[in-house]
């Protein structure tokens, strides 16, 4: 009697169900109309099926975004689980679109679906990649900008996973500051 090995047919469950959103920059439509849910997944296999199926960020048009958020959290500041939070922001220069953008984005997704930030993974809401002419941006959003320990853990591990040089500081900004900023720059609450 042959007993099949479950390892071969059972999909590997993720800790969370995730939703991948796509934002298309269509000036004729409202912001929320331009935000579209692509698909949700909760296994490793379904993550790769989706990831392998869609365009890489470097191929998107200017003004477009990908957002991966835990199921039930909308990729916007106003969401209940975002409004008290903030984001670790990584700004890329133009050359990095060719060299780094796609691999940084994949690494970001692996960090999220793999729950790579120990207990601090609880604080993660999602991640966003913005494709912009002046320079692309990557960010990991967390739920509470006062949770310093969790935020610092996420920032340090994220920097390591992207192999960013130690001297290249990245900053964490609260959504509150970002949404109410007067000048072009938002002050950082933390940096690492």
């Amino acid at each position: 009697q042959v007993v099949a090995n479950p390892e071969q047919y059972i999909k590997h469950p993720l800790q969370n169900r995730w939703a991948l959103w796509y934002f298309k920059n269509d000036k004729t439509k409202s912001w929320t109309e331009n935000l579209r849910l692509i698909s949700k997944f909760d296994t490793v296999e379904d993550f790769w099926a989706l990831y392998n199926h869609i365009q890489q960020p470097s191929k998107l048009n200017y003004g477009c975004d990908y957002c991966l958020f835990k199921d039930g959290i909308k990729p916007m500041w106003e969401d209940e689980r975002n409004k008290l939070g903030g984001r670790w922001l990584i700004t890329l220069n133009r050359q990095q679109r060719h060299n780094d953008l796609d691999r940084y984005w994949m690494e970001t997704l692996l960090c999220l679906v793999g729950e790579s930030f120990d207990e601090a993974s609880e604080d993660v809401c999602g991640a966003v990649v913005n494709v912009r002419p002046k320079g692309d941006k990557l960010a990991i959003w967390t739920s509470n900008c006062q949770n310093r320990d969790a935020i610092m853990t996420i920032g340090q591990l994220y920097k390591e996973r992207l192999s960013l040089p130690m001297k290249a500081l990245i900053g964490y900004q609260s959504h509150d500051d970002t949404s109410s900023k007067s000048g072009s720059t938002t002050k950082n609450m933390y940096s690492v």
Partner: peptide, 18 residues
Amino acid sequence: GTRIIYDRKFLLDCRNSP
């Protein structure tokens, strides 16, 4: 409680397995 974590090597290996 327990947390289901996957390291990057495992995730990348899964990408290539049929």
